[in-house]
Simulated scan of single mutants.
Amino acid sequence: MNLLAIHFCIFVLLIDIIDSVELTFELPDNSKECFYQEVLKNRSAILEYQVITGGQYDVDVELLSPTKEIIYRQIKSQFDSHQFTAPKTGVYAACFSNEFSTFSHKLIYMDFSLTEEVNPLPGVDEHATVLTQMEQTAQEIHKSLNAILDYQTHHRLREAQGRKRGEDLNERVLWFSIIETSAMLIIAITTVIVLRSFFTEKRPSQMKYGRLDGR
């Protein structure tokens, strides 16, 4: 039982490494980044992405075939997913461009993976017998773990995006408060100076000179 569990975990890890490219990367301004995934003919794959932080949360996206044909293109997109079936075997490229931005860096999440499920228990399909309860349970656990990973990823993305927006809002409120406080202090000091000038008593020497001038 323990040996089967170890083999199961190793196999799932190998599937994740070989059949998917999932990462979060920073895309500087005036730059373009491409990521590559080998897909066999008639194999289904999906590209999913989301801009987490930066600018207006938008990016240009292109999905290219091995012959450099454009399979999918979006201009200034915030998030999307595109599923396709490979017409031929080769290396497909997912390119993200921030060339339209002159100062905003972008933080982008991308998942470029094959969508067809691989049997988590190698050799099971070779048997003509019905799956045992343990094998069925293992397959259900495998599907549930994949669903949990997807949910966790999306929740982490929303959390990171919300945290970044909260930090930006906090910074704006801080600077607005500093400017407002400074303006109030300047107005208060100016008001005090003006009022003091109205109620300041004249010195005797000033009054004497005033009488002489009156004569």
Rank of each mutant, 00 (worst) to 15 (best):
C9D: 13
R215T: 11
D16M: 07
S65R: 08
S20L: 00
E117A: 15
G90N: 03
S81P: 02
T89I: 00
R172K: 08
L27N: 01
P87L: 10
S97M: 03
G90K: 00
L145I: 14
Y109E: 11
P122G: 11
F84A: 07
T89M: 02
D16H: 14
F112D: 07
S182L: 10
Q136K: 12
L131C: 06
T89E: 13
T67R: 15
F199C: 09
T181Q: 15
F100R: 12
D19E: 08
R73S: 11
V91L: 09
E201D: 06
F176I: 11
T137M: 05
S101D: 12
S205Y: 05
K88M: 15
P120H: 14
S197I: 05
S81E: 11
H127K: 13
I186D: 01
E99T: 06
E180M: 04
V118I: 11
H155C: 13
H82A: 06
T24Q: 09
A147V: 01
I6V: 12
P87F: 07
G210K: 04
M207R: 15
T67V: 04
F25S: 09
L121P: 12
P122R: 14
M184N: 10
Q136F: 05
A188K: 04
L114M: 05
Y109I: 07
T153L: 11
G54K: 12
S197E: 12
E117Y: 12
V118E: 04
Q50S: 15
V59Q: 06
R158W: 07
S81C: 05
F100P: 00
V118K: 03
Q50D: 10
L131S: 06
F198E: 05
V21M: 06
V130G: 02
S104F: 13
Y109M: 12
G166L: 01
L121W: 12
L13F: 10
D19N: 12
T115H: 02
A45T: 02
R43Y: 09
T137I: 01
Q139L: 07
D19M: 11
K76Q: 15
L149V: 08
N146D: 08
I186P: 01
C95E: 13
S81D: 14
R73G: 01
L149I: 10
E69I: 01
I193H: 08
Q37R: 13
F199S: 09
Q152D: 14
F103R: 10
T85A: 06
F112Q: 09
R73D: 03
R172I: 12
S182M: 07
F35D: 05
I10E: 08
F8E: 11
Y109F: 15
W175K: 00
D29P: 14
F199D: 03
Q133L: 07
I18C: 04
I179S: 01
T89R: 04
R215W: 07
A93C: 11
E38H: 12
M110A: 14
G210R: 07
Q133N: 09
L169S: 14
S65C: 12
L145K: 10
E38N: 03
D111R: 15
K208T: 08
S31T: 13
E22R: 12
K68P: 00
L145Y: 14
I18L: 13
T190S: 11
M184Q: 14
T181C: 01
L131R: 08
T191H: 02
N170Q: 06
D80T: 05
I46H: 03
L63S: 04
Q161F: 09
Q50V: 10
T191S: 07
